[in-house]
Structure formats: C-alpha cells, structure tokens
Design a binder for these strands. Structure first.
Lengths: 209, 209
DNA sequence: CACAGCGTTGAACGAGCGTTCAACGCTGTG
DNA sequence: CACAGCGTTGAACGCTCGTTCAACGCTGTG
C-alpha cells in the first residue's frame, strides 16, 4: 500500500531475484516467462534487462545467492565445537528455515541444467563444496560411533533430498510453520525412526502432532 | 542395430512415454521439445500426434503410468503380513528399483503443475492415495512402538523426498547400482542414523563402502 | 533554466516450438 | 491388379516469448 520509496539498484536486483525464484519454483525455468517475473513486481519486462543481461543470468544469480547463504551456514556450523549429531541437527534446522523463509523455497531445486556449461560448472563446484561439508560431518559421526556405519555420501544425498523436497509440498499459508517442519525433520533425519525395545527416546519437544 | 521389427501400436506408445520421461527429466516439461522426444526414437514430431493428442497428454500418460506401477507396489506391500518396519523397508527397496530401472528416474519428479486443472486433479488424487498408504504404514509402526512417536505425515514426506531426489544425482553409468542405493536408503530411512551407546546395530549386509 | 543521466517504457523483431494437415508408401486383402 | 487403411512424412502456420532499442520523464546539479 505505502507507495514504494525509490529502491537502490542493488535492492531492486534482489527483488527481481525473489520474484524470479518464486516463478521458477512454480513453473520451472522454461515454464516461467520473463514477463511473469516482471509483472509480479509491477514493472515491464523490458526493464528487467536494465538489471540483468538475460534470463539465464537471473537463474544464475538465484543459484549464486542461495549458495552464498547455504555455504555461510555451513561455515558457521563447522566452526562451532559440538558433536557431529548436534552439528547435523543444527544444519538441518537452519537449512529448512533459510529455505522456506528466505529463499522462496527454491535453493537447489530449480533447473540447474538450464544453465550453459560455463555457468553450470561454477554452480556445481559450489554445490559440491556444500555436499562435501555435509558428508564430512556425517563421516565424523560415524568415526566417533555416534552414527551407524554406512556410506556418508548416500546419507548426505538422502538428507538433502528430504529437505529440498519440502519445496514441493510446503504451503506458506498452511498450518505447518517452517520451525515445526525443521524440528520434525531434524528429529527424524538425525534421531532415526526405529526404536529398539527398551531404548530411551531421544529428548523431544512435546510430541509434535 | 537389429532393424526394429514393426511394433504394435501399444508398444509404440510406451516407447514414446519412455523417451518423453527421459527428456522431461533432463530438461523439464517446458524445456523438452516434442521434436526432441521424437528424434530420440528416430521418428518425426508430426508422427507423435498419431499416438497422442498433444504434449500435455504425453505428460499425463507418464504420470499415469508411474502411478500404476507405484500403486500396484503399494498394494503388494500392504497385502503381505509382516511388521511395519519390514513393510517400509520393502517399499523403499522396491520403489528405488522401479524408479531407477523402469521409470527412467522420473516418477513423481516432473512438473505436475504443467498439467491443466482437470488432469492435475486426477493425478494428485492418486498420488495422495500413495501418500496415505505410506503414512498408514508409518502410523502402524508408531502405534506398535517399533517407530518413535512423531508426525507420520512428515516422516512420509521425508522418505518420499529422499527417494525422489535420487533422480537428481543418479547416473546409470556410475558405479552405484540401483540395488546398492536401495539398500543404503532402506538402512538409513528405516534403521536411522544415531546409535545409542551399547545398542546393537541392526542386521546389515557387509558394511557398504 | 539548461543539461545530464538513470530508470523506465512500449513497441517491434525474430526464433523456436506446438500443432495441423494433405499427401504418400507400404502391407495385406478380395 | 485394385483397393483400403494404417503409419508416416515434411512443410506450413501461428503463437509465445526472449531480447533489443529508440525515446521519454524525472531528479538533481551548475
């Protein structure tokens, strides 16, 4: 309602990225039109080309931005001196929060393959860095015996899949808060499902309904 | 190499679906062209319209086919009289197998939203049926105390996410067989990650590398 | 008041793609 | 040999969408 005060150019770029991320999530990269991205911001599509060279650059910037956020998170988690299971738990909680509340539920889900090879390589390199960090935490847990032995790569893929998939069913208007989802996922993905007879349940907040 | 013997019409339809599913997975629905789907089968795009009314109908048929396969699996698993954890394990193993070896790694991953509302509703109804079946198994495990208490809906989402995400990183030419992936995922998603001190590890095949 | 430049507009272009369709060959039948 | 019909072709159409660009208003400066 308030007549938007003129935005600095950098802010405008971020506005565009958010609109684009939302459109890409709903329709996919090829399905979302440049006009659609612009209209959501009440600007013309021609104007977008003042801020970005082309549609691909917008997609690239979306991924770049998401990775900035996620790699910063990873660094944070690595730095704190806690046990692997605490680290993993914190990582999942924060990932879900960032994904749903800051990244328009888009992060790593949108068509990477739509990028041309040079840009694609850059993004993949950074995504791999994130993967490695995640695997490292899992490996540490296995080495320490906190986690069951297994293939850390596969566990990492499973965790990433579970979390990224949230964007497919999450409804911001629905009853589930990003907080509650994060808790439930951290509980399950770190604590596990099966309870051996007589095993004490790990500390839980009042059982989520 | 062998000059393909003339295929019956129904077989030809399935060939098309497989090619389409592969193309959709790589490029997304809007990114994949009708011509691309046809060329992979060495036919012209015009010819596709002898078998399907339009591109959307191809997408619809892909989902329909996937759901046929998956709902049949669900029925199978429900019918067998075993414990919830065994059922869940079997479901995951078979799901991964079907997904990677039969469904061109495509199942539920491709842009549902690209379907027009009437078709979309039909697919969503069947997908929900699958979800309900999965949740039911999880609920039974929780009721029986085999599984930790929690929200079965969230656990089901996490499992589906982990499994469907496989299509994003699986490489048929890579070292991992669909079998190995299924085992690792079933181990993790059913057995869990965390080991309490002194807890016996659940039976595992020789620790996967 | 003149000027400069940033941000914006809206029309236009051109390519790509989904879809249509008239025509064609091949196969089996009478 | 004539005919029918299935499966196929390839060209053409029309629409959508990404991209370009000349022109315009608004704001602040000298």
């Amino acid at each position: 309602m308030a007549p938007a005060p003129t935005l600095a150019s950098a802010d405008r770029r971020i506005e565009i990225l958010k609109s684009a991320a939302a459109a890409f999530r709903r329709r996919g990269y090829h399905g979302a039109s440049v006009d659609e991205i612009a209209s959501a911001l009440e600007m013309t599509k021609g104007n977008l080309y003042y801020y970005f060279r082309n549609k691909e650059e917008i997609l690239y910037a979306c991924h770049e931005y998401s990775l900035d956020v996620l790699l910063a998170l990873l660094d944070d988690v690595r730095a704190d001196a806690s046990t692997p299971d605490q680290k993993l738990r914190r990582l999942i909680l924060a990932f879900v929060h960032l994904l749903l509340d800051e990244l328009q539920a888009t992060a790593l889900t949108i068509d990477l393959q739509a990028l041309s090879p040079p840009l694609l390589r850059k993004i993949i390199a950074r995504r791999d860095a994130f993967d490695r960090g995640l695997r490292e935490i899992i490996q540490q847990g296995m080495d320490a015996g906190t986690f069951a032995p297994g293939n850390p790569k596969m566990v990492a893929f499973a965790v990433m899949g579970a979390v990224n998939w949230i964007t497919k069913w999450y409804d911001p208007a629905g009853p589930l808060t990003s907080e509650a989802i994060g808790q439930a996922f951290a509980d399950y993905l770190v604590g596990g499902l099966t309870r051996m007879p007589g095993e004490p349940a790990p500390p839980l907040p009042p059982p989520a309904r």
